[in-house]
């Protein structure tokens, strides 16, 4: 474990805490894409299939359980909670997220880490995570008013994978000296998708103005 990876995991955890805080305190999920949240449930479940078969560390197991548990809880809030589900921006959250699944699965079959079920699903989860934010970014472009917690959530979510890229560079030079095409390329694509958002988010933060993404 290096500081970059720990910072990445904590940033990821913080993004989820911010999202849960928004939903629980404001009893609203306005501006949050249910489709992105559903994709994250799939990402975590297909990535952590080894949860009970491979013990890496207490930290690793605990974080996997937290990520699976919180992502399911967020989907539950947005779909079933009697108050929160009324605030879901159903009409704007229209990205056909299920269309992302077949290409990622085919790519996982073509370029798996290893040709075993768990490794194909692990690769699938890496590819899917890279594009899972698309529905959320589309929704932000359509939201006339992005609240601070939603903006912070997306920013932290993008920042976590950027920190992971630094972790991979660090590990390459200090530990493994091996190139990891699957997570590295996917991580770069994932972080690049946030570039536009990062630009407007930092600009709005510097100018103390409301965050708005050009349509």
């Amino acid at each position: 474990m290096n500081i970059f990876r720990l910072a990445g995991d904590m940033t990821h955890l913080l993004s989820i805490v911010v999202l849960l805080l928004k939903i629980r305190t404001t009893k609203s999920c306005a501006g949050i894409s249910l489709k992105t949240q559903e994709l994250y449930v799939i990402v975590f479940i297909t990535r952590y299939l080894d949860l009970f078969t491979r013990y890496v560390s207490f930290y690793n197991t605990a974080m996997k359980l937290v990520f699976i548990g919180t992502s399911v809880a967020i989907v539950w809030y947005m779909r079933l909670h009697k108050v929160v589900k009324q605030t879901y921006s159903r009409d704007e959250d229209t990205f056909k997220h299920y269309l992302l699944i077949p290409p990622c699965f085919i790519l996982a079959l073509l370029i798996p880490l290893e040709f075993t079920v768990t490794e194909i699903l692990w690769s699938f989860s890496i590819y899917l995570e890279a594009v899972a934010i698309l529905p959320q970014l589309l929704l932000l472009q359509r939201s006339s008013n992005i609240d601070n917690l939603t903006g912070s959530y997306v920013f932290l979510l993008g920042a976590y994978r950027a920190l992971y890229i630094v972790n991979w560079v660090y590990r390459f030079f200090t530990e493994t000296h091996k190139i990891r095409w699957i997570p590295w390329i996917s991580g770069l694509v994932q972080t690049a998708l946030y570039a536009d958002f990062f630009y407007y988010y930092i600009k709005s933060w510097k100018n103390h103005e409301k965050l708005r993404l050009p349509a």
């Binding site: 990876r5 995991d9 080894d50 491979r54 560390s57 690793n60 290893e114 972790n167 493994t176 990891r180």
Partner: peptide
């Protein structure tokens, strides 16, 4: 096994 290094990350 080299891939363990891959799977010790979240």
């Amino acid at each position: 096994e080299e891939d363990d290094e891959m799977h010790d990350e979240l």
